[in-house]
Simulated assay, not measured.
Amino acid sequence: MKLPGCPNAVNQEETKREWGTRAQDITVYLGAHNRAIGDEKLRLKAERVIRHPEYSPRTFINDVALIKVNNKIKFTNGLCSVCLPNENTAIGEGVEATITGWGNTSPYNLMYPTVLMKAVVNIVSQENCSAAYAKSIPPSQICAAAPGKDSCQGDSGGPMVVESDGTWQLIGITSWGRGCANPKYPGVYTNVVMFVPWIQNNSQDCGQQCSN
């Protein structure tokens, strides 16, 4: 979630593992597509990292953080933000969602693409996801899967979005799973709908938050 001069939704473990724990160690690339040629539209430094105070590294519950960047972001035709869903939004089973990232593209070998990849997956019910993992998946997490498609290592913190009336909404943040594209186990994402109040409370000074 790109907010002008304000936080972006990210995954806690990704922040610690790949970006470091200090804001000054983080660079935010906006509008990037091909990592090999550095085609990002805008590059900003992080000013502050806001981690959810009740995040659990054991269960990945509350797996969300915000990054406040050091400058305002001006939206253009080539640089847009995704919108937050309404906190009462219900995402039903089977709904198509799009995931993106530069993560591993093979469940057996480390194959990281230079070009941004995307896949379309379908929402899996809490009941079926809980049954797959043989444990309760809480409402703060949402599951999705499709044959041969999934998030993988390196995609953590990436978006899962749905389109509604021409507007893209951020409904999930890549969090965890068992393997990659394993037909027995859906991918598990932070359910952004449950965190809308927390995100809004921590980004009240941000101005425009959605470029539609």
Rank of each mutant, 00 (worst) to 15 (best):
R178W: 13
C129G: 12
N182Y: 03
W19F: 14
N62R: 05
I61Y: 12
K16S: 12
V124E: 07
G166K: 14
K41H: 12
V10T: 13
Y29K: 06
K68C: 03
E18G: 08
D165N: 15
G101E: 06
Q141I: 04
A119D: 08
P57K: 11
I26R: 07
S140H: 10
E18H: 14
D205T: 06
G177L: 04
R43K: 15
P57R: 10
G157Y: 06
S56V: 11
N128P: 04
V193H: 06
V161Q: 04
T190I: 03
K149M: 07
I73Q: 04
S136W: 11
K16A: 12
N88G: 14
T105H: 07
P7K: 01
K74R: 07
C143M: 07
F75G: 01
V95A: 15
A119N: 09
T27Y: 10
T100I: 07
L84P: 10
M117H: 09
I137N: 00
E54Y: 11
A46M: 03
K135F: 15
G158P: 05
T15I: 14
I199E: 01
V196K: 14
N201Y: 07
P113H: 07
C180V: 03
Q204V: 06
A119F: 08
G94H: 04
L42H: 09
G148M: 11
P147V: 00
P53L: 00
G177M: 02
S164R: 13
C80T: 11
M1L: 13
T105K: 06
A36N: 13
K2S: 14
L170S: 06
N71M: 07
V162T: 08
E40H: 10
N70L: 12
E54G: 03
S175D: 02
Q153G: 03
Y189K: 01
N128S: 13
G207C: 02
K184C: 05
D150M: 11
G31Y: 07
I26H: 09
K16V: 08
I173N: 05
N109C: 06
I142S: 10
L44I: 09
P107K: 09
A46Y: 03
P147Y: 02
P197M: 07
T167G: 04
P183E: 04
N34C: 11
T98S: 04
T98N: 04
R22S: 13
G101V: 05
V192F: 00
P147E: 03
G157P: 05
M117A: 09
Y189G: 02
P186Y: 01
H33D: 01
N86C: 12
P139W: 00
I99E: 01
S125T: 04
D155Q: 00
G31P: 11
A46H: 02
A90D: 13
S125W: 00
I26P: 04
Q12P: 01
R43Y: 06
N88E: 12
E127L: 06
Q209K: 14
C83T: 08
Q126G: 01
E47G: 15
R35I: 13
S56W: 12
E47Q: 14
G5Q: 10
C143S: 07
T76Y: 11
Q200P: 07
V161G: 02
N212R: 11
V192L: 00
P186T: 00
I199Q: 00
N201G: 14
I123W: 03
D205S: 09
A145Q: 15
P147W: 00
L66G: 05
T76G: 09
V82L: 09
Y29S: 08
A23D: 08
A144G: 15
P4T: 11
P4I: 09
S106I: 05
V124I: 13
